[in-house]
């Protein structure tokens, strides 16, 4: 019995090793770097970052872009996912919507840029957001589709039976029951949007720099200290939004008011 346990556990060693080298170690390095400047322990990097108006500005712009992109993805993606679950061919149609993900994202973004230029569209905030939505829409549709298609049809029938018309069925059963899908869709779009780099740089001709881009910039300029502080801020944002989202998810399950 004990032998069995040992052998089973052995399968996890490669993964643990991988995690140590590629996840835990970098995190430790970021933490160390954030508190180091010129070889000594200090808060200087934090002071540098939080007193630099442009960094804070980048952060706020990133959050705004993330918020707008996520909202557009949700409002575009929900009806699509909902309609797909109503059709028998929905399973295959979903693949079509995820087809763009098969193309490398840099190539895709460059191609998008060419299209904007061909259409004589000025590159700026609008093009950045269109590019973001284009890139992240599949990540919204997928979880929404999964969660909507897993809702048992009998709930809708029960609601109808109790006197709900089709709008009532949607508002009272389908929508609340799809909240887990909405939550994971938001998480899968919002967090990558605020941390991504290259998309905004390419689609705005370097006019708009998002948080991900500026972290990239700091590290390429050998400013490891400030870069690490920014990475820490990023991690805290990710944790924060995950906590918020799981709270929203739980709130719907515990059965509060309608």
């Amino acid at each position: 019995m004990s032998k069995m346990k040992l052998t089973r556990r052995a399968f996890s060693y490669p993964y643990i090793l991988f995690m140590m080298i590629f996840v835990v170690l970098p995190l430790v390095l970021i933490l160390v770097n954030a508190f180091m400047a010129n070889g000594e322990l200090t808060f200087k990097n934090f002071v540098n970052f939080f007193s630099d108006g442009s960094s804070i500005h980048t952060l706020l712009i990133s959050l705004a872009v993330g918020f707008i992109t996520t909202s557009i993805c949700l409002f575009l993606g929900y009806p699509i996912a909902y309609l797909l679950t109503k059709r028998k061919s929905g399973r295959y149609m979903v693949l079509l919507f995820t087809l763009p993900m098969w193309v490398n994202f840099l190539l895709r973004t460059l191609a998008t840029k060419e299209i904007f230029q061909a259409l004589n569209m000025p590159l700026g905030m609008a093009t950045v957001i269109i590019g973001m939505v284009y890139n992240y829409l599949p990540f919204m549709i997928m979880p929404l589709y999964t969660s909507l298609s897993n809702i048992d049809k009998s709930y809708a029938e029960a609601a109808q039976d109790l006197g709900a018309n089709s709008l009532g069925v949607f508002l009272n059963t389908t929508l609340p029951l799809s909240v887990p899908g909405i939550v994971s869709g938001i998480t899968m779009v919002f967090i990558p949007t605020i941390s991504t780099f290259a998309i905004s740089e390419l689609l705005s001709d370097r006019m708009i720099t998002l948080f991900g881009d500026s972290i990239n910039l700091k590290f390429t300029q050998d400013m490891y200290g400030v870069g690490s502080v920014m990475s820490l801020v990023m991690i805290i944002l990710v944790i924060l939004s995950n906590v918020l989202m799981s709270k929203a998810d739980k709130g719907t399950k515990s059965g509060g008011a309608v």
């Binding site: 029938e157 609601a159 109808q160 109790l162 018309n165 399950k253 059965g255 509060g256």
Partner: peptide, 28 residues
């Protein structure tokens, strides 16, 4: 349509709304 008929159904697997508590299921 079902919502306009003077009948109500008890479903085979109950189909109780998982996002509502007992009270709100009944008040639906």
């Amino acid at each position: 349509p079902p919502h306009k008929r003077p009948v109500n159904t008890v479903f085979q697997k109950y189909a109780l709304f998982p996002h509502l508590n007992v009270y709100n299921n009944i008040a639906f």
